[in-house]
Nucleic acid binder design. Structure first.
Lengths: 168, 168
DNA sequence: TTCTTTAGGACAATATGTTGTCGTATATTA
DNA sequence: TAATATACGACAACATATTGTCCTAAAGAA
């Protein structure tokens, strides 16, 4: 039994190793091919993630910088640079928040919405369909489920690491 | 039937959208939590990928820069910076190739191997186990299978995009 | 033996991502 | 009201990633 257990662990580690290597490659290829898919619009995958977040119905009135950083799981400092480039390009505006005067509200501009809906979305849909041709709806939901599970655990580890660092 | 088909497509697009968003988040969290896991060793997830590639038995005699770039799926220019930092840190050396004098061979140093095997690997294993606690061997191989499928299609799209650009 | 391809150095511009720190204004809570 | 927490700007340093261009040297094919 002990031996069996160790073999399972070894198998798991070997699989885990391959899995993370492929995840690493996937991440790079996503940015490379994804950015290429929308480069005519002057966008990148990161900017497309921001526009995707802002285009949701529930955020018609915008999101604060902090909310957006938490939603996208990136640092505030990184997001600041991203947002300033997108403001420069006219895709969004950063205005004051009436309720909380420390906070600023990020909103899509009419131009940004037009670029997103009329030019970027069709290309993004084509990109999705191109990559997921041989995926059934079932395959997709399984993959999504696994990614969510990994993400959950990474979030937990992130919190643990932050706590460990705080104790120092 | 046509209506059914469109609903399936809509469902697929919605799932695809969520899937890629989660993939994007996963990529960021992988680099964040992964790098934190090995930061005591002065490593990053990218450097761990390089060491992982070089530590394989079949590359005891090293790999050329181009081979490594293709294996990791990163650009030559990016890899050059990575390798020079790792050479600076003493983890690897870049020497001449006896057979092909254009090519240079990247090899792990004894120090690099020691850091990798004795200090990094235990932490990486702990990291894997921490993230994949609630994954069965079956879950792992399914996730790996889906990632490989996505990666295959991304590779195909990459080639198509390069071809399209070449026609311009 | 030329011609073409391949390998890689060197450099630049740009975008993305992290951490850390300092400072200020504003909310919130005790 | 006074202490504390939060939101964010403004920097800096660093690593990672892309693209593009120009160059040289060497390998391989016609």
């Amino acid at each position: 039994m002990a031996l069996e257990g160790r073999n399972v662990d070894t198998a798991k580690l070997e699989l885990a190793n391959r899995l993370f290597f492929r995840l690493y490659q996937c991440a790079n290829m996503l940015h490379k091919t994804g950015t290429r898919a929308v480069e005519t619009e002057g966008l990148t995958t990161q900017q497309w993630a921001v526009l995707g977040a802002l285009s949701r119905e529930r955020v018609q009135h915008g999101m604060s910088v902090g909310e957006l950083a938490r939603y996208l799981m990136v640092s505030r400092q990184n997001l600041a640079g991203l947002l300033s480039r997108m403001e420069r390009d006219g895709h969004l505006t950063i205005g004051p928040n009436g309720r909380d005067r420390r906070s600023r509200v990020v909103t899509m501009t009419a131009t940004g919405r037009r670029v997103w809906q009329q030019r970027a979305l069709p290309k993004i849909r084509a990109y999705y369909e191109n990559i997921l041709t041989d995926f059934s709806v079932n395959d997709l939901s399984h993959t999504l489920h696994y990614l969510l599970k990994i993400l959950d655990n990474m979030g937990r580890i992130d919190a643990e690491q932050l706590q460990a660092a705080a104790r120092t």
